[in-house]
Design a protein around this nucleic acid. Structure first.
Lengths: 149, 149
DNA sequence: CATCATATTATGGTATTTTATGGTTGTCAA
DNA sequence: TTGACAACCATAAAATACCATAATATGATG
């Protein structure tokens, strides 16, 4: 299953927030009932995925030379920064404060589906980002077509 | 299976509408019993497809590259706008209000088969669209015109 | 061919469950 | 002991499951 759609939920003072129902459903077949969060390398937002995908990433980096510089960087950048957050009984997680601050989130969190991954934005920041990139993305729209079905 | 034909069904006040039987049949072998809807990038209508197709699209654009901004923007545009809607026991879905408003649908929804995808139109809007494209087609295909004797 | 029976679909209304959210309490470790 | 954090209630609103019926198609039979 995929992370689809855009949902806005409130974050309380403790950083507690409901993960959208559809997003939770997207992980219901996984052994780990929760999500992995880490800061985005390209935008002012939090990125998230399933544990399953993290393991896939790990397998991909395993193919690199153990002592290569690349491997060192990837491991330190991705895995050291990632936190696993499990859902509580009502479907909430507690987002660590440093991630909330990194994304500039105040009060409300925007969950943005991206297929295999998702992002968590401050609403205002997301609108700023969209204004900048939407037209560019539309220009590249022809590349969206399938090569083969 | 393909989405074929054009069927008109009623939408109630909650946005609830029966998906045409033939369209439901087109998804009967999929694991997700429902459809994915998103707003058209080119027309005043809603577009739809199966979850299977979405996953194919995800596989095509997913390259595990955490640092590619282009990849990020592209994924955002498609997946952040998509909603997964499962059929209820009688074969209905609830179309989100913002999509209904985007397409200008009032009362009745026109399901238009397009093979691997389909569209949902307001009837009047669809007829307007058809009239426009017919004229364009005529303009661009002078070879169709009859010779006067 | 007309008519009746049956199955499927479409539609409307209501009841129940799920979700999101806030607040409180318990617990473990620094 | 106190501060951080997880577990535990409680509740309003929203979503969806449920039930009943109408409309349509399908098919059998005399």
């Amino acid at each position: 299953m995929l992370f689809l759609g855009t949902i806005e939920n409130k974050i309380d003072a403790k950083g507690r927030v409901s993960v959208p129902s559809d997003f939770r459903m997207a992980t219901k077949n996984d052994s780990f009932q929760g999500v992995i969060l880490y800061h985005s390398f390209t935008h002012k937002c939090i990125e998230g995925c399933t544990m399953e995908r993290m393991e896939k990433l790990s397998d991909a980096t395993d193919n690199l030379d153990l002592f290569s510089e690349e491997n060192e960087n990837l491991n330190s950048l991705i895995f050291s920064d990632a936190r696993q957050l499990s859902f509580d009984v009502t479907g909430r997680i507690v987002i660590p404060m440093d991630l909330i601050e990194f994304a500039g989130i105040k009060g409300n969190a925007l969950f943005v589906g991206r297929g295999k991954t998702f992002q968590i934005w401050d609403k205002a920041e997301f609108e700023k980002y969209q204004a900048e990139t939407r037209q560019n993305a539309l220009k590249n729209r022809p590349s969206l077509s399938f090569k083969k079905d």
